[in-house]
Design a protein around this nucleic acid. Structure first.
Length: 818
DNA sequence: ATCTCCCGCCATATG
DNA sequence: CATATGGCGGGAGAT
């Protein structure tokens, strides 16, 4: 048996006698390997790897070698290197098959070497598993491991049996953005802190006791159905692999990446990752074996990610000893790069047949390539916005003579004009989309509004507009929080509604001079756009239509599948949503509300009964919070240069949301003391609009989720809690005792050490540039705002990173890089 | 001893 | 049904 399982080894091992006694091995055990690896062994996984690199780039090679020389840990590697000189490339392949040489990481390198990082639109490469397994001399099983992880990053996608398409890293930025966003929604930061905290508290305990706190903190023990985050255009083709389940490795991989993306510093220990990934599914017993299995998988994933140079192994050292961990070394994920991205990829996309290029444009157009009609997806935020608006409008219109309501309407409008510029942009897009679909269907092939200011952006061929889109308008919907774009499809009816309402605030002058003039830019752009498209817009800006729309089919919302960490919060929002849902329930479905903003290929939500894609039981909205407070209203907006730098986006896409405001500044500067708002006098009576108002404020991140803004903000200060949000998770519900209690447990100002604060800390040490090879630094954003760790090089070539103070003030952690 | 994680059995999914 | 996928965990190399 053993003999059979290692044919490769035997064939390959030419000089190393396989005189091992494998005959007496039990069938179930791993075949004992030919003992020692002579120091003279010219072949090591590293050298093999370096070989690959060398082949690709001479300079990198020299670098590698130099590094090798200087690297004390490279010891014998030198000797080996010499020896390998006289070995032929073939022999390389067949050299000593040490365990290491069969590592998934190395295999992955080989695999990756076969395909270009950034394949041009033309050279669409397909992957045939049979070929790969043969050429790489590996078991099929191993390839699956690799491919699955690559799939999770949308670097490849499955076509059919044995067939995959290679996308390369084109999708990476988008994928990471999406993952980061989801990670934030999942409140991973909180979970991480919770785990660390518990660990800290119980490190001396005789373990055992399962604390309920954990359970509660992990909230909704509800199954977080393994949701795979997809990207438009890269969704699982062949409708196959979609089989819900069995995407475990993929999902796990994504979640693992999410942990990095939301962490500060971007270091995740395997232990924590495993616990979170386990706890997510079933917050059950920390089954030892299950834990071990999880760890194993994480190693597998980590190996692939390492090969991709997205992470690298480090060691976190604390009192208890050193634990394996990984550090993100991939690209920083910018909050709002969709347009930059768009522009960037549009070049690649230029070839008439954008078929293969997964650029934003492309995605937005082909999100639902096949059949259009009932395939609508939209981001929850927009849905909620629209609902809020409609709700209010309805109420307002029901009593048109009510001064209170009218003023509320005004107030709302003002708010909207002031706050939701981004939303306005959405609306513009909707209008545009509508125009596109109704007035000039062919126009959807033209660059979308975002692309307008970019003349260089090549125009899409008319043919690119799927016929099915005639009744649906593709709209790029940038999420205000993450910057991730989502394509939404609207029915003209929806667009009408929104559009009709928009004039109320869309053109509202914004008297408040606030931060950075960004807004005015936005406005200008908006106006400009409005003007440009004015004629068309008229067609849809019929006020009466909106009134009539009262009875029009309303969008049906899909309850989010995202579990909420805090039930209380979910509760609050549940009410909101349920209430709205109640009167929409039986109405025609024109939109599909994908929970938590996931972009799901419409094939999932077939025939309008999108109910399938998520359980409607859960209505908790978990994605309302934002790690940073932002407020275009507050006059004082502390903003660091770095934060501004991240906003290198076309003007009208620079939203106020990019402005970071410390919680304190918000509290200090009453949000509603704004001149704009002062202009409106409203009664203090609870107005139905307040819920919408609150919603919007929360949505936009002006106030924490739990906080309610009174209907009449002028008379009452916004009870913005001075309690800072807990990092990006920021879902603290100050109204819920239990939650508050949990939060307080952090003590020692640990809670204050959220991302926001840390990122604003002037003294936050920047991560010094390490003398590493280009390849290692390639994706590293110099001095990223996230680097909240201090680091120093050691003579042994390792880095030591003191971290953890932000989360666990009393705990000192060190990170040792290998 | 602990960390890593390869190997391949076998349950499932797919076609 | 034959294959393709991939969950899973034993237990062996690496350190």
């Amino acid at each position: 048996r053993n003999v059979l399982k290692t044919p490769l080894k035997q064939a390959a091992t030419s000089q190393w006698v396989l005189t091992e006694r494998q005959s007496d091995c039990q069938p179930l055990t791993t075949p004992p390997k030919p003992k020692e690896t002579p120091p003279a062994d010219p072949w090591t996984p590293t050298s093999n790897l370096k070989m690959l690199i060398s082949a690709a780039s001479p300079e990198i090679r020299s670098r590698e070698q130099r590094k090798q020389l200087s690297n004390s840990s490279s010891e014998v590697l030198q000797a080996k290197h010499c020896l390998q000189e006289h070995l032929l490339s073939d022999e390389y392949e067949k050299s000593q098959p040490s365990r290491k040489e069969k590592s998934l990481g190395l295999l992955c390198h080989k695999f990756l070497a076969r395909y270009p990082d950034y394949p041009s639109a033309g050279q669409k490469s397909y992957i045939c598993l049979d070929e790969v397994t043969e050429e790489l001399h590996v078991e099929r099983r191993r390839i699956y491991d690799i491919v699955n992880v690559l799939e999770s990053l949308h670097m490849v996608s499955r076509l059919a049996r044995n067939r995959y398409v290679w996308h390369g890293r084109h999708n990476l930025p988008q994928t990471l953005q999406a993952l980061k966003k989801v990670g934030e929604e999942n409140k991973y930061i909180q979970q991480i802190q919770m785990i660390k905290k518990r660990e800290y508290e119980h490190e001396f305990d005789a373990d055992g006791e399962r604390n309920e706190e954990m359970a509660s903190s992990f909230g909704s023990s509800e199954q977080s159905e393994m949701s795979f985050v997809e990207l438009p255009g890269v969704e699982f083709r062949a409708a196959s692999v979609n089989g819900r389940k069995y995407k475990s490795l993929r999902v796990m991989s994504q979640k693992f990446v999410m942990l990095f993306l939301v962490s500060t510093p971007q270091i995740v220990s395997l232990e924590v990752a495993a616990k979170i990934l386990i706890g997510e599914d079933q917050l059950e017993d920390l089954d030892k074996s299950k834990f071990k299995t999880k760890i194993r998988r994480l190693y597998d994933i980590a190996n692939v990610l390492s090969s991709l140079k997205l992470i690298k192994k480090v060691h976190v050292t604390e009192e208890r000893g050193r634990k394996p961990a990984f550090k993100w070394t991939g690209p920083e994920v910018l909050p709002n790069i969709q347009d930059t991205k768009l522009e960037a990829t549009s070049t690649t996309c230029s070839p008439p047949i954008s078929e293969s290029t997964p650029s934003k444009e492309h995605c937005s157009k082909n999100l639902f390539p096949s059949k259009g009609k009932q395939n609508f997806t939209r981001h929850s935020s927009l849905i909620k916005l629209v609902k809020s608006i409609e709700n209010d409008r309805r109420k307002i219109q029901s009593a048109p003579t009510s001064p209170v309501k009218i003023s509320m309407y005004l107030l709302l409008s003002l708010f909207l004009s002031h706050i939701a510029l981004l939303e306005i942009v959405f609306i513009y897009k909707i209008i545009w989309g509508l125009i596109c679909s109704e007035e000039m269907p062919l126009k959807c092939a033209l660059p979308s509004p975002e692309a307008v200011p970019k003349p260089e952006a090549p125009q899409q061929p008319l043919g690119a507009c799927p016929a099915g889109h005639s009744s649906v308008s593709p709209v790029l919907l940038p999420h205000p929080h993450s910057g991730v774009s989502y394509a939404i499809y609207l029915h003209p009816s929806q667009a009408h509604t929104v559009t009709t309402y928009s004039p109320g605030f869309m053109l509202q002058p914004l008297p408040c001079a606030n931060a950075t003039g960004i807004k005015s830019n936005n406005l200008q752009v908006l106006n400009k756009i409005s003007t440009e498209e004015g004629d068309n817009q008229i067609a849809v800006a019929e006020p009466t239509k909106s009134l009539a729309a009262e009875e029009r089919p309303e969008m049906k919302s899909e309850t989010p599948t995202q579990r909420c960490l805090k039930r209380s919060q979910a509760l609050q929002e549940n009410n909101l949503i349920k209430k709205r849902r109640s009167d929409e329930e039986s109405l025609d479905i024109s939109l599909t509300f994908i929970p938590s903003g996931y972009l799901i290929p419409l094939t999932h939500c077939t025939h309008g009964s999108k109910a399938d894609c998520s359980n409607k039981e859960k209505a908790g909205m978990c994605s309302l919070q934002h790690p940073a407070y932002s407020s275009p209203i507050t006059g004082v907006i502390p903003m660091t240069a770095s934060e501004l730098k991240t906003v290198n986006i076309p003007a009208f896409h620079i939203t106020p949301l990019n402005i970071m405001v410390s919680p304190n500044s918000i509290a200090a500067a009453p949000v509603l003391s704004n001149s704009c708002l002062n202009s409106s006098n409203t009664s203090s009576a609870q107005n139905p609009s307040s819920s919408a108002l609150n919603f919007m404020l929360q949505h936009i991140g002006l106030i924490p989720a739990g906080v309610q803004v009174p209907a009449n903000p002028v008379l009452q200060h916004v009870p913005v809690s001075s309690q800072p949000e807990n990092s990006s998770s920021g879902n603290t519900n100050v109204q819920e005792g239990k939650v508050s209690k949990n939060i307080l447990h952090f003590g020692h100002g640990g809670l204050r050490g959220n991302t926001l604060v840390s990122s604003l800390q002037p003294s936050a040490p920047k991560e010094p540039q390490e003398p590493q090879t280009i390849t290692e630094n390639f994706f590293r954003t110099p001095g990223g705002p996230n680097s909240g760790s201090s680091l120093s090089s050691h003579s042994d070539g390792t880095e030591r990173i003191s971290q953890g103070t932000l989360y666990i003030p009393q705990r000192k952690l060190e990170v040792l890089e290998d």
